[in-house]
Design a protein around this nucleic acid. Structure first.
Lengths: 195, 195
DNA sequence: TCAATTATGGCATCGAGTGCCAAAATGCAA
DNA sequence: TTGCATTTTGGCACTCGATGCCATAATTGA
């Protein structure tokens, strides 16, 4: 497959570069105190182009999540017929992602992003994140192995709890791994029946 | 204690009334499609006054959460010396609140609000909610009964998971009670150790 | 050279949220 | 009654995120 000679005007702006610049500014001055205009200027693009590449300020932080979502899509397709309990879903979806976070090269960048999330929780309102939820729910929907608890309910709660744990980890979990923090937090939630 | 003859100009605007009107508009047309200007006009106050009474659009939905926060404060103070596990925290804080939701009179209003939350997740970025988290964390902080899992981590995850479950319940949990949905969801999360 | 295509940037506009300030409506003191 | 302090109200202007429209630039293909 050749480079496939694109038709119109070639793209001059580099989205990854822009996102890196923005993340740097966010870290230095705080998410709220950096305006889209400043980012545009720092990245040498027009404000309008910046908004075309990143439809919302949040997208600058979530850059790369689309790739994660695609991995989740593939996994969901591959697991279409498998027998899974909730623990299995966590293992199949979340844990590989978490292990990725714990990789030495990626950990620092992940921490940066998650710290930003913790500081500006509005960032959680993000469509791709919702799609990941939906994919997990769909994967669980076929089977009743999780008892009579509706799979979409579990999926939604699972994603929310996982991200909450991750955000805490990014801010305060210096000593532990992302995976350990998440497992510990989820494990502690179960309401042992003492009425 | 007499009505205590207030000093300045008496307040003309009725916050509760305004919140009711706003909630009605949100339900009919959707949270995003109702502007603060429209709410102000419908409630016969100026836009500026509306923003003074409800500093953000979200506050119109969360109206009344301050009361819940105060109850949580009292409970936290009362439990200052008690021995509690996570299950106990859920019981002491969340369940009374959930039972309140399941009361026939309140259930419909609660559903309305939670449905709005689900439709506009940005609403979760709300300081009183964060304070409730902090109170639960503080209450748990003194004791090591929850193992070596840091209490703030559990508190944060617990609140996030509870609200996620509640929002699902508001949208799709027609048949069940809020309490049952939350208990089921949290119970399903525990990663049973099969690596 | 000309048309189709795609990226860019400028401009206007909307809506949330904030700061500033003048006017209105009260209680209280002189 | 007059004047003062106090509190609410509302108008105005402004910032910032986000969107729509349109002209222009840069490329490929005919």
């Amino acid at each position: 497959m050749q480079p496939a000679a694109k038709r119109g005007r070639p793209q001059e702006a580099d989205p990854r570069q822009i996102a890196r610049i923005a993340l740097g500014l966010f870290e230095r001055h705080g998410f709220d105190r950096v305006t889209m205009g400043e980012i545009a200027e720092a990245a040498s693009v027009s404000r309008r182009t910046l908004f075309r590449l990143f439809p919302s300020k949040s997208d600058l932080v979530w850059d790369g999540l689309d790739a994660v979502r695609d991995v989740v899509r593939q996994r969901a397709a591959a697991l279409a017929g498998a027998e899974l309990r909730v623990a299995g879903v966590l293992r199949e979806f979340a844990e590989p992602f978490l292990r990725l976070l714990d990789a030495p090269e990626a950990a620092e960048l992940a921490r940066k992003r998650l710290r930003l999330l913790a500081a500006a929780p509005a960032l959680l309102n993000h469509p791709p994140l919702r799609e990941i939820e939906a994919l997990i729910a769909t994967t669980m929907a076929g089977r009743t192995s999780s008892g009579d608890t509706p799979p979409p309910l579990v999926a939604r709660t699972l994603v929310a709890a996982t991200f909450a744990a991750l955000m805490w980890w990014a801010e305060h979990g210096e000593g532990m791994s992302a995976l350990a923090a998440t497992r510990a937090a989820l494990g502690a939630l179960a309401p042992t029946d003492e009425t």
